[in-house]
Design a protein around this nucleic acid. Structure first.
Length: 581
DNA sequence: GCCGTTTTCGGCCCGACTGTTTTCAGTCG
């Protein structure tokens, strides 16, 4: 049991309360508890056992929710939720996934027409039983048909790299068409989340209708969902939704701020505006005269840039990656975050010797061309048969080849290393006397990724305590949108890493991003250094660096906390110290 | 249900678009 179970608990509360017609602020409060639990680096299950009163000190969690968490942790269930489940058909929440269908519509379908799930909605549609239902005209009924078809093929949240391709091609299309003067992507893509719900674009256009027309007819658009003078949404053939907002030039900063979110960050900013007798919306910051739409009557106090808006609220600018469920004083004016330009070393790379596609010399040359001062060659170890892992003999020969390559290319330190498998019991895939001959050891789990949580934690803790390990590579083995990976007690793994002085990897590949943002933040809070590595396999393998850097930024990491951002002397000293040299 | 340098009660973000409406509720982000 972990925070994610508490998240699910309150998400279910929120949905069921919504469908039973509960007070919408109560619904919102439960959803807020779920968000708070999701964003917390505190182990709430542990806290519920050790210091239950402290639960309600967390912002968004009050006495009622704290009691529910304690009940859940101690008994494994919450009576009130079990009672709620008996009131709502199990298939009903799925209807909320239909575009344009919210709680009011679902309740109407349920109570007036006895619809309890998607299947009964389909048959009701087929039999024409929705005729005469208040608010359900022909278009709404057609949208239900379309929505069911959409749900059957829905992609859900997509990986950040897939969303970025869509965003960049839309931006290129609109720029090339000459219909926008300024355009940026906002939303969770700008905040660097690992998955993206939909792509948000904010633009300035002299001729807005023309820009909207160009947007709605760009290549790859499958369906225009909504279109108006300032806002349009389309669904692309690959299922990704793209929204375009067009705002006046003077409001570009306010719109970018507003549409970058997160929702929770915006709520905090608006709350701060309210305290000061001001109103914040996507057009700017205004004096609050108690009437609606101040932007129609007043000049804004600030609106042109994000920085100007934060300053007008008495705050320093916040990096987009930090604009999540966190207090404003933590994220505004945060110490500088690590950047791609700070990264000067790659400590996890493969060659043709195992499953990479670049020969050793080319890998070294490309690392040097990127301006790196250090590259670690870390091919797979012998147990990774599917990846052509190196036998001990091949590994020892590779050490000589690495020395030779370093001398031949020149101007870059090349470390002989290995990405050694962490075996199922936490032991490593080469004996210590072999590992001791390497400059750098990255230890990673590759097999048995469905291990029970306690065994998995013991496995990673044992690897973290191994005196010859430098870095734990992709510690959970998860794949974004692919497989969950090991369910580690991350507090225990981080504690072991801190004790033994091991760094934790943020694997930068967008399919991995492992550690994920929250775990990287927990590592930083514990004082454990991070390694941002591309896990290079191919010629373009270094290009994923930005995704890893963004995860580190979301964790609040500065260059100080990232070993690849250290200068050569410091990094080499750290690596050597792990060998007692 | 949560929260408080206006408040322990009375608020709780707000604007755009759609569809079914004759003036607005519902949904979305």
């Amino acid at each position: 049991m972990g925070n994610e179970d508490i998240v699910r608990l309150f998400e279910e509360f929120a949905v069921l309360l919504e469908l039973t017609g509960a007070n919408s602020f109560r619904v919102l409060a439960n959803a807020k508890v779920a968000r708070a639990a999701e964003a917390s680096t505190i182990d709430l299950v542990h806290l519920a056992r050790s210091d239950p009163k402290a639960l309600s000190n967390i912002d968004g969690i009050g006495g009622g929710s704290a009691a529910k968490i304690v009940e859940f942790v101690t008994t494994g269930a919450v009576k009130e939720l079990i009672e709620l489940r008996t009131q709502v058909p199990a298939g009903l929440p799925a209807l909320l996934g239909l575009p344009g269908v919210g709680p009011k519509s679902v309740r109407l379908l349920w109570q007036e027409r006895g619809i309890v799930d998607l299947a009964s909605l389909e048959s009701a549609l087929a039999e024409g039983r929705l005729q005469g239902l208040a608010g359900f005209g022909p278009k709404k009924i057609q949208n239900l048909h379309d929505g069911i078809a959409f749900l059957k093929t829905a992609v859900g949240r997509v990986r950040i790299d897939d969303a970025l391709v869509v965003a960049e091609s839309a931006i290129t299309h609109l720029r090339d068409a000459g219909v926008v003067d300024q355009i940026e992507f906002a939303g969770s893509l700008r905040r660097g989340k690992e998955t993206i719900g939909d792509v948000d674009l904010v633009a300035v256009a002299a001729n807005a209708p023309r820009a909207m027309e160009s947007f709605c007819s760009m290549p790859g658009v499958a369906k225009v969902l909504v279109t108006g003078p300032t806002k349009s949404s389309v669904r692309m053939e690959d299922g990704i939704q793209v929204d375009l907002r067009i705002v006046p030039e003077h409001a570009f900063g306010a719109a970018l701020l507003y549409f970058t979110g997160s929702k929770e960050h915006n709520v905090l900013l608006r709350g701060r505006a309210q305290q000061r007798g001001l109103r914040l919306n996507e057009y700017g910051l205004f004096e609050d005269d108690g009437l609606d739409a101040p932007q129609d009557r007043r000049a804004p106090l600030a609106s042109r840039t994000e920085k100007e808006l934060y300053e007008a609220l008495g705050l320093a600018w916040a990096e987009p990656e930090l604009r999540e469920v966190r207090p404003l004083d933590e994220v505004c004016g945060h110490a500088p975050l690590v950047t791609v330009a700070d990264i000067r070393a790659e400590l996890h790379a493969h060659t043709t010797e195992s499953d990479g596609s670049m020969p050793l010399l080319e890998l070294v040359q490309r690392a040097k061309d990127r301006g790196f001062h250090t590259l670690a060659v870390t091919d797979h170890s012998r147990s990774s048969v599917q990846a052509n892992g190196l036998s001990i003999d091949r590994l020892l020969r590779q050490i000589d080849a690495v020395r030779e390559a370093e001398a031949r290319v020149g101007g870059i330190r090349v470390l002989a290393g290995s990405e050694v498998d962490i075996l199922v019991d936490g032991s490593l895939d080469y004996p210590d006397d072999v590992l001791a001959q390497l400059d750098l050891v990255v230890a990673s789990p590759h097999a048995s990724l469905r291990q029970a949580p306690d065994l998995a934690t013991a496995r990673l803790v044992r690897a973290a305590r191994h005196p010859l390990v430098h870095i734990l590579g992709h510690p959970t083995g998860r794949l974004v949108n692919g497989r969950p990976g090991l369910e580690l007690d991350m507090h225990a793994v981080i504690a072991a890493a801190r004790e033994s002085g091991v760094a934790l990897e943020i694997n930068a590949h967008p399919a991995r991003l492992d550690l994920r943002d929250l775990h990287a933040r927990m590592a930083i809070e514990a004082g454990v250094p991070l390694a941002i590595d591309c896990d290079v396999h191919a010629r373009d393998g270094f290009d994923v660096l930005g995704y890893g850097v963004q995860v580190a930024r979301r964790a609040g990491a500065g260059p100080e906390q990232v070993i690849n951002a250290w200068d050569a002397a410091r990094l080499h000293a750290w690596i050597a110290a792990r060998r007692g040299r």
